[in-house]
Design a protein around this nucleic acid. Structure first.
Lengths: 259, 259
DNA sequence: TAGTGGTCTAGACCACGCC
DNA sequence: GCGTGGTCTAGACCACTAT
């Protein structure tokens, strides 16, 4: 069912989590692991490469691998879906729909979603709550193909992404741009906070496995409720620091231009 | 010198950048690429895996790879070093040292750096400027081994990380936690902005190749000057959403809590 | 059904760390 | 010099897509 290397990776993760190989210690050699697991060395290497991508182990030619940290659980689905994420930390997610309409795409939405000007999008504004406390405003434009299915979803209770996956709409890739903004009066009203409070803004473009844009969203998190964490290393650096988009630079910026 | 697969990856990146394989198009098959480049299929796969990690291509069993986006240039060094990053976007970096002293680690610093209470750290507060405009405050605690070398660095002009690398201190891994805070009066004074303006806060723990902590830093960026971008996918998700540190949760949390 | 990517093996040689 | 991880090859079989 699952691939051998995934099984090996899982078992190594567990061994690190349960203290067999605590952070700072060294892993057995690839040769030893291959013997113990009864697989080829390349299969062990494939598994170890995955741990390396997660920042769990570090490796250097000539020396055994070092354990850097205990693995984190979170997966892509939990990052994309507020509901999944909330439940994974033991909180009860809910949502309040402020707006849901089919309308012409704005210039930005059209560019990010790869649409022509005035193509229709489904635009949704939702306030997301954690254990009854508002923590985020989600302003999302869906392409028509995905958005039309929203009429089948109970937006107050259900997870949009979970329901869309049941209908064959799969989110596979995303690009996130993160900066900070002060809460507008409108933000403050929706989140029941003071205007001017610092909010963490995440602009997200998500695509299906083929790279076809499915949604473009601008989410604003209450600064003291949510944070993002990224691990990276010399070998793997998915995080990029950008000059923020300003009215003058927005048009020229590569971060924001679509497709 | 460079590995074959790295050379192949570079050439494929170039082919995507120059429009040979634009976003949305399909790459040739692994078999074809292996023949063209004169290498084994596994070498091609290794190169393509790197492009996949960067979110440049997507792959599915049975179908050819799809180009998702044009590759971004930035590397790990440019993320860690403000100076390198600034020059890479064509701006002139500078810095102003507000404080530099050797002192006992705070509780948080000791925990993040893996020190005992009251072990000494080198604490530096610097304002970083882009083309003369203040955009960031950097409050960094270095472990003694790295920090003592700072006396050899011209902090107003030089890049700390570049000089430390010359002395054998190599930054290899980092974990970043990002949230939003309002500028304190002190922040506002240093950055020449209004108090209360939304700032992007990055707390960063960086280690050497062995996972030994080298620095722990709390940086605050002016919200309209800098943003961070992350790409991820089902297969690779280095980004994690966390509940932010609150006075109650800070003690239990490993990721966060303030300076 | 042919082609494609995903997985896995067995073996080779090399560059580097450590003793 | 020995053990380690890094690179590379050649070939096999399988699961899935496209047609």
């Amino acid at each position: 069912m699952t691939a051998l290397y995934q099984d090996v990776a899982l078992r190594l993760r567990r061994a690190i989590s349960d203290g067999t190989y605590p952070p700072g210690s060294q892993l057995p050699s690839e040769h030893e692991l291959a013997e113990w697991f009864g697989v080829a060395r390349s299969t062990i290497r494939h598994a170890l490469a995955m741990l390396g991508e997660d920042g769990v182990v570090a490796s250097h030619r000539g020396a055994r691998r070092t354990v850097l940290a205990v693995p984190r659980l979170q997966n892509f689905g939990e990052l994309r879906s507020f509901s999944l994420w909330a439940r994974s930390i033991g909180a009860e997610p809910s949502g309040r729909v402020e707006l849901l309409e089919r309308r012409a795409a704005t210039e930005v939405q059209a560019r990010e979603l790869g649409l022509s000007a005035d193509d229709p999008v489904i635009y949704v504004v939702r306030v997301r709550l954690l254990d009854g406390k508002p923590v985020m405003i989600e302003r999302t434009a869906y392409v028509e193909r995905a958005g039309l299915l929203l009429s089948f979803v109970d937006l107050e209770r259900e997870s949009i992404s979970e329901r869309l996956e049941e209908h064959g709409i799969v989110f596979a890739h995303a690009e996130h741009t993160i900066d900070a903004v002060n809460a507008t009066p409108d933000d403050a009203r929706l989140l029941a906070i003071e205007p001017g409070l610092a909010l963490l803004r995440e602009r997200r473009r998500a695509t299906d496995p083929r790279g076809q844009a499915l949604e473009w969203s601008e989410d604003r998190y209450v600064g003291d409720a949510v944070a993002f964490t990224i691990r990276n290393s010399i070998a793997l650096s998915p995080l990029v620091r950008d000059r923020a988009a300003t009215p003058e630079t927005a048009a020229a910026s590569t971060t924001n231009s679509g497709n």
